[in-house]
Design a binder for these strands. Structure first.
Lengths: 320, 320
DNA sequence: TTGTAGGCGTTATCAC
DNA sequence: GTGATAACGCCTACAA
């Protein structure tokens, strides 16, 4: 593999001149520039990125960190990758499973200058631990977080959930069962608050809810639960399309008629909701991804690109 | 950030000795080793990987290249990542979309020593072009390829498809419609051959088939097609669970009874087939991923780990 | 406009 | 067992 000195020798110049041509920095005589470029092409020369990285302290790699990847996260991943690649960055992936150490290792890469920034989808360690690393490079998260150190492209679930509840109300539903996720999570809190406010607004007192309902399986179980109730609820608001899908398919299996027997609201607008024709809440993961990159790019390169505004919207299909 | 010289100075030794401790190579006095290790821990020292990479010509990064990522590919990605991380490697991701140049760029990283190996899921450029890069590092593909230069973890679709057909036969189906993918692809050829041999074996002459049927949408359209037929086929063998899912859900919408009206066979055994209870063909993507890593690891580190044997199996659910 | 020299942080080859 | 010393390939003051 040819290196910068080879090029310099063949062009009859010094390495620094070649470097200037490569990086388009400083002054270079037009004629010598052309000669050098020709020789680089001839020798099929490309700079050794490891040397560049050592020297500059930047690798052009951005890290994406998550315990695992599901549909929505893949969407985020795709759009972020596209945005990054467009600007010449590459992506490195860290699947932390449920290993806090793995997550730390990923952040260590930032410290070791193996990656220039981190996009954290779902965290394992405490924020206070992760914040320590922000001094080594920009850190952006998909999760809800109010911090000056770690940036967030989070969208307040309150608005989205309210949209879902309002839709069910408009469809005449008054006995809405809320299927929440993890009680500890801030998202769940937001949703609970949304339901509380919704009830106040319409003077509703029905309050049946479950938490820890996050999987297809969990959703399926809810169908059975519904069958057993005397006072039947007329709608389910869910955490995700997966939960809704489980509930919906199981209900069909039992011969129920959705939405006549009850409505099912999904959340996320992923593939499966399209397939099963579930009404759901769409949110712009693509724009979140772009915003995440914009934040990183702004910090890394002293730019000032504005973010995209984000908003939820209802996708009405046939389950409500 | 402390570097190796700082450690050396504080330990009262030379950088070389510190290096020996770090890499556990050569002889180091037990006592000095302990001192050095203590100081490294104190200063929270970690070697700068860029310097290591420059020196050794290895980065510890493995590239995964694909135009996009769907369910099966994500599964492959996960398992490969886990295997790689376990051995201290990291993953970098290249989404080529449909841009041949992007794919080349990814392979260029191999040449520039930014990554140590490539796992190629779906190619865009000609094999002959990509083979050029194999001299810069191991290249493994998920696709069918018979080459000494690029390695493959492909599984012959003939066997899997035969399994599907045999199952339908056992269920009394004799008019099986084949929904093939791209006619050009070697996979399609294998499937066609499987059907041909199947017909010979059972003396079947029915031969209705379509090609280019690869999406949910395509599957949906087949439901409508079935309705319009006078001589109704009694089964569909498909390219993928997505196609099967589209066909299945649309048929249900039309009030058809699967499998009474006709059987639907999926392929892949992804989430959606579990959800919709589609009979399908499972193949061990996890093992393919592990094998891909084993091949790379063997080459990179002169190991000789044997691969896992791979085989298809039938997952019988309710659509047949 | 170009060249020189020094350094980025490691590893590897020798001597000692 | 240990320590100089020379790479690895590039960038960047500074000098010319």
């Amino acid at each position: 593999m040819a290196n910068i000195k080879d090029i310099a020798r063949l062009a009859g110049v010094s390495a620094s001149t070649v470097s200037r041509v490569i990086n388009q920095s400083g002054y270079v005589n037009e004629k010598t520039r052309i000669t050098i470029e020709k020789i680089m092409k001839q020798l099929d020369y490309v700079p050794n990125r490891n040397a560049v990285s050592l020297k500059t302290g930047r690798t052009g790699f951005l890290g994406i960190v998550a315990p695992y990847f599901n549909d929505s996260m893949n969407l985020l991943l795709s759009h972020f990758t596209m945005a990054a690649q467009k600007e010449g960055y590459n992506i490195s992936l860290f699947m932390t499973l449920n290993d806090k150490n793995k997550e730390i290792q990923a952040f260590e890469m930032l410290r070791r200058k193996q990656i220039d920034a981190v996009l954290l989808l779902i965290r394992l360690n405490e924020w206070s631990v992760l914040e320590q690393y922000a001094k080594y490079g920009p850190v952006v998260t998909w999760q809800r977080l109010d911090s000056d150190i770690i940036h967030s492209v989070y969208m307040n679930q309150y608005d989205g959930y309210t949209l879902a509840l309002e839709h069910l109300y408009k469809k005449g539903r008054r006995k809405i069962v809320n299927l929440y996720g993890n009680l500890e999570s801030l998202n769940t809190r937001s949703r609970m608050k949304a339901y509380e406010d919704f009830c106040k607004k319409y003077n509703i007192h029905y309050n049946e809810n479950f938490h820890g309902i996050a999987s297809v399986k969990n959703g399926e179980n809810m169908a059975q639960w519904w069958l057993k109730q005397k006072e039947k609820p007329d709608a389910f608001a869910t955490l995700s399309d997966s939960v809704a899908a489980g509930l919906f398919t199981k209900a069909q299996e039992y011969g129920l008629d959705i939405p006549r027997d009850f409505s099912v609201m999904g959340f996320d607008d992923i593939e499966i909701s399209r397939l099963l024709k579930l009404t759901t809440i769409h949110y712009p993961i693509d724009l979140q991804a772009k915003n995440a990159f914009i934040i990183i790019d702004n910090i890394l390169n002293n730019k000032n690109t504005p973010s995209f505004p984000l908003s939820f919207h209802l996708v009405e299909r046939k389950s409500t």
